[in-house]
Write a protein that binds this DNA or RNA. Structure first.
Lengths: 247, 247
DNA sequence: GCAAAAGTGTTGTGAATACACCCATGG
DNA sequence: CCATGGGTGTATTCACAACACTTTTGC
């Protein structure tokens, strides 16, 4: 396969390429997939939606939800399509994380994949995941998966840990109305770290991004907590710009 | 082109795929390139290394340094290869940023590209860039480029702004020995923001990651500043783990 | 009244900010 | 001696961390 130096020497320096289509036809082509890491939160545990691998070499192992990218399909669209096919939902938080390209990552030959993270509220789509091949798995309990999917999951989990500290992603995993306790449980589960309850509440109170909906928890065997929803509009308006060296 | 539902219906549910190679052969294939955003720093200005596009439709426009990914080549390797071909250097800071996949981003048809950022010290490789098609361009002065490269550059520039505040990347753009003034100029150029000189020095002093090499600047028309080098070993040992909500 | 979690305030410490003067060097 | 930028210190403000008691509800 030609690399750029060889191609460049095939036409005179300074001479312009008139037919880009012919040029592109000389490029090697690779099979490209998107793998979605669908995170959810249930019973105070961070979970990920997995499917049993249908490859015999990975017999019994779990894999991420992936599919090949279609002709002329944007990667974002491919990820949204997979999400829709699996959960029936659209308008879901979804973000590209990174590409994985180890030549031997797929037993069927060279396949490059682009990992996407999505955070979904498990309550909101329980209907579609009755398919017995799909399963919400505790993130912490996984060690081995099909392909390089464990590596991808680990990377996305770290990405999520960092991301959730700087952006209000967590609210996508919670019900629209949630208690402070639920919010804190979510952060503790994702960060895998205990947080001081008073300081946590103080922090969110001082941000002024939670709206008290004047409702309280129901059916709890103790004093019910107040419910809040997140003020996405205010957040979008006041997004801060970071200046500050910190490492 | 088949998507996953169609493929899945072509073999019985529960039946395992025995020949992954045949499966992969059914995947659509796309031309894949890597584009390197090579940042440099000179005359207190952030620059990027560009080449004149050799496509006629982009006549006169500048483009990033890119090349197609070779068969069985890792993306990281492709990026390093391009870097080596263009600057003659290896062991350079290089990181994958994200993929760009708009179907019409390349006039020759569907080409997906993965953007990499690299930070290089302009002084260290002046020899190889005498090629008249290569040029260090001020990042701030660019508005229009070939392909979607202006979009990629803008994205990478923002990525760099964030990254440099949390990781000691900046030192890759400076000479091994540098003055506090040079360091601050670099940060101000990248962040596009003035910083208080005393607080900047205090911050870096308190981190304890700068080694005083007991040398001073030369040939400056004023009191010469002390020179430092960055203590990469100490940084690697003490890398901090972030816990803290901030948005 | 007991268990269980909600709700709340203060204090200390360290970091970021704002700000002004003297010093060393070259010309 | 003058111009230029190097080098330093302090006071204030703010954010974070640590920490304990009272309140409300279900049972």
């Amino acid at each position: 396969m030609k690399n750029i130096s060889q191609r460049m020497s095939s036409h005179k320096a300074g001479e312009l390429v008139k037919d880009p289509t012919t040029l592109v036809e000389t490029y090697p082509k690779v099979p490209l997939t998107v793998d979605c890491v669908l995170f959810g939160f249930e019973e105070n545990v961070l979970k990920v939606l997995l499917i049993r691998s249908d490859l015999q070499v990975f017999d019994g192992l779990w894999s991420l939800l992936g599919d090949n990218v279609l002709d002329n399909e944007e990667l974002d669209d491919a990820a949204n399509r997979i999400l829709k096919e699996r959960t029936g939902m659209d308008d879901i938080y979804l973000e590209q994380v990174r590409s994985f390209s180890h030549p031997a990552r797929h037993p069927g030959g060279r396949v490059i994949t682009v990992a996407y993270c999505s955070l979904i509220n498990i309550q909101h789509h329980q209907l579609k995941i009755l398919d017995h091949e799909l399963h919400w798995h505790e993130v912490q309990s996984l060690t081995k998966m099909a392909f390089d999917h464990f590596e991808i999951l680990t990377y996305c989990n770290q990405w999520l840990q960092k991301r959730i500290q700087e952006h209000p992603l967590g609210f996508n995993l919670l019900p629209v109305k949630f208690s402070m306790r639920e919010l804190q449980n979510l952060y503790e589960a994702i960060l895998n770290h205990q947080l001081d309850r008073r300081n946590f509440r103080k922090k969110f109170a001082s941000m002024g991004l939670l709206i008290d909906v004047n409702e309280i928890e129901d059916n709890v065997p103790h004093r019910p907590g107040k419910l809040y929803k997140f003020n996405f509009e205010k957040y979008e308006k006041n997004k801060r710009n970071w200046i500050g060296i910190d490492f």
